[in-house]
Design a protein around this nucleic acid. Structure first.
Lengths: 341, 341
DNA sequence: CTGAAAGCGCTTACAG
DNA sequence: CTGAAAGCGCTTACAG
């Protein structure tokens, strides 16, 4: 029972003794409760400083306080898109005094489910989630949980939760329309991960656009690796149906296509036009610079975090909010446009 | 006192009642304690499942258990290098059942200090840190803290803590030597953030290498923005001291230099050779592909996390461990090498 | 404006 | 092998 052992953290009780008051007064002072005499408060603050006292978070939790922390689960932190989102979430949370628990599901729904479970019971006050598979059955329980959940980029399809996402369909239309304006008539859509709703929406936008333009050469190429990309594109470009343009529906497919076309010595922007969905900073450095649909990744994170914090702080019961953020077409040269010098 | 209100989480007590045993037996069962009759254990497990019971983390903490969580603080999560590190840390932690609490200091040492403070008192069992300024005074206290700290990429300079970093000096030598072998004689070193120890080490490697080769044209260009890069490089390339090669000491400077040279219509790999420190996946996509010193970012994160977990679990008292990971030169074309087809 | 009591949900000794 | 008691450090009522 050696009270002032230096390795041991000071407790509220220690502070109370040092300040010559009751524990409640210390508690009130810390929490900015009114009705503490300024004199008393001063003595308490002095004691806190002197003992380098910090409230024990665990003890607060136990008395039913909020944890002032949120959880964030993304498939892959090393992916630029998710890392930008994560950074924005972290900054937004910090500004409100919230901590963020971060987890990467590594594209495994069962890991993801375990992480949701672990965070729920940690507990955190709310969870921000980029679901690997927005149709996975475990997600059904998520809406019935006590703590609020906001999904980012991909709404859950089985139940309705708050979500923040991007105009996938309209974005795809912008991309494809631009190619059509360039006179392209045989536009192939290249995708990976087409089990994702986001990708399916982009495909829908692509098809819609072709229909409107009365182009019948709708063709979708589903890739799952760079190797496969090489094989498939080689065949495609040797066939009679050689496309005059490609719409790559996500970042990975854009990069695979660029690498492959380079190997095949097919000049992007001339022999074949290219517009991608999802803009990445280094697209300006590629020759030719890539025209792409820009998603507001940071804003996605920020808006989602704000929504979650609002749910936590004020109303957790009003009806679901599904936010859709606009995208924009960043025109560079792979689409056939010329750089103005 | 409505015990079975469905919104309320089941407690250990609830499980005990349901299983008809004392709370201690439940606790022992959960914690895999020996000396629990298999029969009893079964009943307990059934009750746990039925009530969907999860231990309350906060309550455990309060009884002096470890939190099974670690903190990770990086300057900027949106930076590829740090996001790869973060992903590896997260995966390593998960494999050991640890949760990671993530913070981005946004390159602000006072935010960083506050985050360390907050994490320390949360509490977490240990902290992984990429310090913004490895000489900041607040870091002095860090070694005296109760919880272990491992720094990543940048050792603290004022005190000695465990650290994991990379062979900066040797890496720079590899880069510059390669340029010398290509016959370059006027090699300029371009850097940003030269307050960082890592950068200073790279500069030292550069100078060392020139000295060995008896080249006297050591020249260091310190940049702090793309704008400045453009001005400075324009002057440099118009001067009589026009370099025949550039060694860019980090990712940002490599990219700024590439953009600038492109604007100036100076052909990289021919008119001027270029080798950068820090390899990024998209360097293969640039024309010409960039030759760069590759840092094992994921390994940096993994090794640091493992070291920290080891400190937490077994010995926190043995002497400081400073790990230095090797780097490698990834030869592509910006250095003047030709692609083998 | 201030304090004594009780309890949050668990675990560590201490008894059987 | 099992349980009753006490306590971790705080906060929420309840009194003054």
């Amino acid at each position: 029972m050696r009270k002032s052992l230096p390795t041991k953290r000071a407790t509220l009780e220690d502070v109370a003794q040092a300040a010559g008051v009751g524990p409640m007064t210390v508690s009130r002072t810390i929490n900015g409760h009114p009705y503490v005499a300024e004199d008393t408060a001063k003595r308490v603050r002095a004691a806190i400083r002197q003992l380098n006292y910090r409230p024990n978070h665990a003890a607060r939790m136990l008395t039913g306080q909020q944890s002032r922390s949120i959880g964030l689960i993304v498939p892959d932190l090393a992916d630029t898109f998710f890392s930008i989102i994560s950074h924005a979430v972290q900054e937004t949370a910090r500004e409100s005094g919230y901590l963020v628990w971060l987890a990467a599901s590594s594209y495994d729904p069962s890991i993801e489910a375990a992480q949701v479970e672990q965070m729920t019971h940690h507990p955190v006050d709310g969870i921000l989630l980029v679901p690997v598979d927005s149709r996975h059955k475990y997600l059904k329980e998520i809406a019935s949980r006590i703590i609020p959940v906001v999904t980012i980029d991909r709404p859950i399809e089985l139940v309705t939760t708050d979500s923040v996402q991007v105009e996938n369909r309209a974005g795809a239309r912008m991309a494809v329309e631009h190619l059509i304006q360039h006179g392209c008539r045989r536009i192939t859509c290249v995708v990976t991960n087409n089990h994702l709703r986001t990708i399916r929406d982009r495909i829908a936008g692509y098809e819609e656009c072709l229909r409107h333009a009365r182009l019948s050469h709708s063709k979708i190429l589903q890739l799952s690796s760079l190797m496969e990309a090489k094989d498939t594109l080689l065949k495609l470009f040797e066939s009679r149906n050689r496309p005059d343009a490609l719409f790559t529906a996500n970042n990975a497919s854009t990069i695979w296509v660029i690498e492959t076309l380079r190997e095949l010595n097919i000049e992007v922007g001339k022999e074949v036009k290219l517009v991608g969905f999802d803009d990445v900073s280094f697209y300006t450095l590629i020759t030719p610079p890539i025209t792409a649909v820009r998603q507001p990744a940071a804003e996605l994170g920020r808006v989602a975090a704000q929504l979650l914090l609002q749910r936590i702080k004020v109303d957790s019961f009003s009806s679901t909010i599904r936010t859709v953020l606009p995208v924009s077409l960043v025109i560079r040269e792979s689409c056939g446009c010329k750089r103005e010098l």
